[in-house]
Simulated assay, not measured.
Amino acid sequence: MTGKTILVMGGAHVDRRGRIAGETAPGASNPGAWFVEAGGGAFNAARNLARLGRTVRLVSPRGGDADGAIVAAAAEAAGVEDTPFTFLDRATPSYTAIIERDGNLVIALADMELYRLFSPRRLQQRAMREAVAAAGLILTDANLPAETLAAMAAAARAAGVPIAGIAISPAKVPRFAASFSALAFLFMNEAEARTLAGVAPEDPADWPKALRAAGLCAGVVTRGGRGVVAFDAEKAVLVTPPEAPALADVTGAGDSLASGFLDAWMAGHDIGEALRHGVAAAAITVRSPLAVAEEMSQAALQAALSLVPEAEGMA
């Protein structure tokens, strides 16, 4: 394991994806198949970081049910120290989606109510204060309430610990608004970035300016298969992802990009090289049918990195 503990506090739940086998028949029974795996932006990133050799501790609300056992087993398999808040009479959060044969979403249901119970008061517990003080980095996501994210950012700042966030969705990313000045980085896609900036620049070089104007000091914007943008207070860079020979599933790609980026950044690399590592980690994930690729490792990352072009500086 490498360096200080990365303390991850955020979404850790179960994803269910049902894929319809034939043409979709609304209002009727459709033949198909279910796929179930652990998910959640913060949890996906936590497992990737652990597979990359980092010491990772997870804190997240969980129910006392079979879904909670799925999350616990996934944490153990990845080498993540799992320390949940368990509510025996509640259901573990879950995301259930019905997907057409061509991959388009028909409908989804997100049962995330339990995350509301991760209140700012939890952070005042002695064990949590000690965990924050001992961390080398805190990683969270917008599954948690806005007031909890703000309290977390304040606690990190007081302890002198960097904190990074994962946007999750356009609807949830505004929960980070009160924490912008404290975030070392916020990882988001273009739709989430547009929600924050209020605009969608045609030139990717304009994303840093638009997001800085919204109050964000540093961030990373993914753009599908197009160039990924990263910026901080000093500079902005762009890395173009290599052509993927075969896409198994893009689920979790953004979370793995955050993992590769943060692993390199904590090792002392600048944002250009960190972004290259992030793009390499995402390339490994999109070749896997899982949200967290079982083959993720430093060796696999170095092999993927050889295909990633150098970062381009942007004005």
Rank of each mutant, 00 (worst) to 15 (best):
R116W: 07
S119I: 08
A281G: 03
A12Y: 08
S256F: 04
A142G: 03
P208C: 03
A46W: 11
M188W: 10
M296L: 15
V71D: 02
D15L: 13
T148I: 11
A78N: 02
T140L: 07
G227F: 04
F35P: 03
A77F: 00
D67T: 03
A28V: 08
S256N: 14
D111P: 03
R54T: 05
P145N: 11
P120L: 08
W207T: 07
V229K: 00
A77E: 14
T251M: 03
A73G: 13
F118A: 12
A158D: 14
E190V: 00
E295S: 15
A21K: 04
A177S: 14
R122Y: 10
N189L: 02
P242L: 10
I138A: 07
A246G: 05
A210D: 08
G136F: 07
A315S: 11
T2W: 09
L183F: 12
L49V: 13
D141I: 02
P174R: 02
A213K: 15
P145Y: 10
V199G: 01
R129N: 01
A127T: 05
L307D: 09
A214D: 07
T24M: 13
R212I: 01
I138R: 01
I20Y: 01
E312I: 04
H269S: 13
D232N: 12
V132H: 01
A69W: 07
L196T: 05
D65Y: 09
M266A: 12
A193P: 01
A267G: 01
I70Y: 04
A267D: 12
Y115Q: 11
K235A: 13
V161H: 02
M266E: 15
R122P: 02
G165F: 01
A214S: 11
I20R: 00
S60T: 15
P204T: 00
R129C: 02
R121F: 08
S256T: 15
G22Y: 00
A311P: 06
D249V: 04
E192H: 03
I163H: 06
A184P: 02
A283Q: 12
V132M: 00
A282W: 08
A74F: 09
D255H: 11
D249L: 03
G268K: 05
D89W: 11
A267Q: 09
D89Q: 15
P145A: 11
A293P: 08
